[in-house]
Simulated assay, not measured.
Amino acid sequence: MNKTVKKLDNNLVKALTIACESFKDVVPGFQWLTHSADYANFPGSLVITCVFNTNLEIQQVLARSEDALMRKTIQQQLLKVGVLLKDVRRNVFLDSEEACLAQHNGDWQARIL
């Protein structure tokens, strides 16, 4: 990872940490988030995964349209560090510990990549 990419990744982490902490207080069931990207194709390759405990919690978030609020918050935080996403719905996904455990034996590294 060269110096420019490292700085970009550090800024992403800072922005996403702010979003993550804000979700913990207002989005029931939200646990954590992570990101991955191919920096040769950035920001189009950026994938942000918001993790909940269960699939039911995700369904409830979708029913209350809180996913739109989460995407908007993430997009606002990314803009503050100079990252513009064309369509945040293509970059931000909801997932659950329950699904990862069932499909990937709890191995998030394998699930995300």
Rank of each mutant, 00 (worst) to 15 (best):
R71L: 07
V13I: 12
T17H: 08
D25K: 11
F23D: 03
L85R: 10
S96P: 15
W108K: 11
T54I: 01
V47R: 15
R64C: 03
F23K: 06
A99W: 15
K14T: 12
N11T: 01
S65C: 03
D107P: 00
H35G: 05
D38L: 11
S45A: 11
A63L: 09
F93Y: 13
R90Y: 13
L79R: 07
L16R: 09
P28T: 10
T17E: 09
N55L: 02
F23L: 06
Y39T: 12
T54R: 05
E21Q: 11
M70L: 08
S22C: 06
W108Y: 14
C100N: 13
A40K: 15
I48V: 15
L78R: 02
D95T: 07
L46P: 05
H35Q: 11
L101D: 08
D25F: 05
Q59R: 12
V81F: 00
F23P: 08
E97I: 13
A102M: 12
L94E: 04
F42E: 10
Q77M: 06
N55G: 03
S22A: 13
Q109R: 05
E66C: 03
F42M: 13
K14I: 11
N11L: 06
A99Y: 15
N55E: 11
L69G: 00
D25I: 03
H104E: 05
W108N: 00
C50K: 05
F30G: 00
N53D: 10
R71Y: 02
S22Q: 14
G44K: 08
C50M: 14
N55H: 06
D107C: 14
I48E: 11
P43F: 12
V27W: 04
L16M: 07
N53C: 05
E57I: 01
L16E: 10
F52G: 03
R64V: 10
L78W: 09
T34C: 15
S36R: 14
L56C: 01
L78D: 02
R71W: 01
G44S: 12
S65T: 07
V61P: 00
V88Y: 09
D107Y: 07
A19C: 04
K72G: 02
W108A: 02
A110M: 14
V88S: 15
Q109P: 00
N41L: 10
D95R: 09
E21V: 05
L94S: 05
N41T: 12
N55F: 04
V88C: 08
K80H: 10
D107H: 08
G106L: 09
P43E: 11
A40M: 14
M70Q: 11
R64I: 05
E21G: 03
I74R: 04
Q109S: 08
P43Q: 12
V51H: 01
S45T: 06
G82Q: 06
L85V: 07
T49E: 15
Q77I: 06
D95W: 15
K14F: 10
A19P: 03
H35L: 07
L69Q: 05
M70P: 02
V83A: 08
L62D: 02
S65H: 06
I74H: 03
W108D: 01
F93G: 04
E97W: 04
I58D: 00
I58W: 01
V47C: 14
L101T: 09
E66R: 06
T73Q: 08
F93H: 13
F30D: 04
L79Y: 07
R71N: 01
